[in-house]
Design a protein around this nucleic acid. Sequence first.
RNA 1: GGCCCGUUCGUCUAUCGGCUAGGACAUCUCCCUUUCACGGAGGAAAGACGGGUUCGAUUCCCGUACGGGCUACCA
Length: 507
Amino acid sequence: MTKKVRVRFAPSPTGGLHLGGVRTVLYNYLFARKHGGDFILRIEDTDQSRYVQGAEEYIFECLKWCGIEPDESVLHGGEFAPYRQSERKAIYNEYAEKLVKDGFAYYAFDTTEELEEMRAKFKTHDNPTPQYNHEIRERMRNSLTLGEEEVHRLMSAGSPYVVRIKMPMNEEIKFTDMIRGEVNFHSSLVDDKVLLKADGMPTYHLAVVVDDHLMKISHAFRGEEWLPSAPVHILLWKYLFGLENMPEWAHLPLILKPDGNGKLSKRDGDRLGFPVFAMDWTDPKTGEKATGFKERGFLPGAFVNMLAMLGWNDGTEQEIFTLDELCEKFSLERVHKSGAKFDYEKAKWFNHEWIKRNTKYDLRSTVYEILSQRGIEINDNDKLEKVIELVKDRCTLLTDFYDQAKFFFSTPETVDVDSIKGKWNDDKTAFFKEWISSLDSLEWKATSLEAKFKELAAAKNIKVGELMLPLRIMLVGGKFGPGVFDIAEIIGTEETKQRVEKALRSL
RNA sequence: GGCCCGUUCGUCUAUCGGCUAGGACAUCUCCCUUUCACGGAGGAAAGACGGGUUCGAUUCCCGUACGGGCUACCA
């Protein structure tokens, strides 16, 4: 019997969608699909100051590109709407009030300055960041210390206040994480986290718990950085909805910087020269640009494949998986506990494998787009397919198709004649003249062209080896590309003749 | 500092007490290719340390070290 699951995707719309974010969403998606569950995309935008316009649309586009398509209607309706936490503001207040009434939370009137003062005052070498905890709260301005009348007076006078959770003095808080097993905390070591901010918005802590309950989430996935605040969420579940209704938690390992240590951030991408976002992203506030894997030339399948393997494997030696295969084989039991350093070389390897495994038909439209974006006109689909077939094994990124394929469609602008000039002589000129004049009567196939080429060389007593490189230079402009005769076959008789003649003139 | 999590080749990882520790990326050598790649063959390369438990520990337990995360009216 399969359990009905409902997981949530909760990317925060504070700009961009980085590797860690996509992977969390991906694992959510794989799990939901495998277990036949629903998924919800919830926008966690409770921090108004960091919220960025257009971020939601961007996230949808990224997910769509990856092949993970959440139902777009979730933003506009459906069973649990609204899905933007900023639009659910009124809901959270009710729960915060309930917590206060039941004695699990309290009002705190301390100003930012007062908090800073407190931190400065209690700061010691052994305790560099004093917490607003069971000890400190006795000395602060809150509904625990102030007395009912004063609280009432402050509130009716419109004094700003927050709601803080009242962490119990002496309680073991334990829960089972699907990846890590049992995790324990002691309540005395956790501080009285703010649940409802002065602007009436909930913090993440209150919002996840309330929304997970209201949206009937059965399994909650998030990054490992959330582990330390899990006891707050556990307690909230206990106070509000009952531990027996709490979703199962899975704290995913972090994606780390390739060099040094620490979490991978968007700055690392700029610094080390690789993308960390799924797609290009420009922060509308700062104008800061970040490049995406898509624009760098990654196939979505390769991107998803690479990301999935960064923290999971199926126990066999298989490394290449399609999204469907991942859905089928994914299991949380095999998700790793420890973080993984991101390796861009390996990421490129995945892409290369995917390009090689894709057919010319799979690649056709993507390559067409890349070439035309860079000013190459293509009006012969048949030719494009032939070129892709010939060239795809040497492309690691989709953008490599430009360098590998451009000379099939337009005469090379620069021809590196210098590298053959040294050993040039009239015999060679004569040879090439004769070869191109023989072309018209030939069957236009790579094998015939090569046969004729060799036959003529032998007749003129010139080593074939001394003629191959010149021919390549004449046709493609440099020392690269697939077999020369294959190239000639594709570009055709006229173009072959013209390129040879053009080169001969400058020799 | 405190709390929590983690620790197998340079990197990503396999191993669920029997290991001559396997694979992949990167690297090196050779082969193939009258270019550059692809491809093929091979090499070098790992269990943080110290204690237990056990006939036997990379695997289980405990310490230590190291790494990471958190420690906001950010998520």
